[in-house]
């Protein structure tokens, strides 16, 4: 699968998920079962650089979400 196609799979996969806006790296492994974890990791980190995704971090762990979706800045989950 080419990079652009994989990116599309990820964005569509995230858009389908209801009720959650932030995802663990492992959730992306399941979306690209033929890819190795390191390749998926590189891909999603690149998608953050390209501003398709964004990080959310509690400080101890890091999650990913579609840029601008869900909890932003000082908001709480579920708030605009």
């Amino acid at each position: 699968m080419e990079t652009a196609e994989a990116q599309k799979v990820i964005i569509e996969g995230l858009e389908k998920k209801k009720g959650k806006s932030k995802f663990y790296l492992k959730d992306f492994y399941a979306m690209l079962p033929d890819w190795k974890p390191r390749e998926v990791n590189k891909l999603v980190n690149n998608m953050v650089q390209q501003e398709m995704l964004e990080y959310w971090s509690s400080g101890s762990t890091t999650l990913y979400g579609i840029k601008g979706a869900g909890k932003q800045g000082a908001a709480e989950e579920g708030e605009e």
Binding site: N45, V48, Q49, E54, Y55, W56, S57, S58, G59, T62, K71, Q72, G73, A74, E76
Partner: peptide, 16 residues
Amino acid sequence: KHGGIVGVFGYGGGVI
């Protein structure tokens, strides 16, 4: 509040 999106461009760590 718990956590946040903030960081510096190109990095995914170092800022909490």
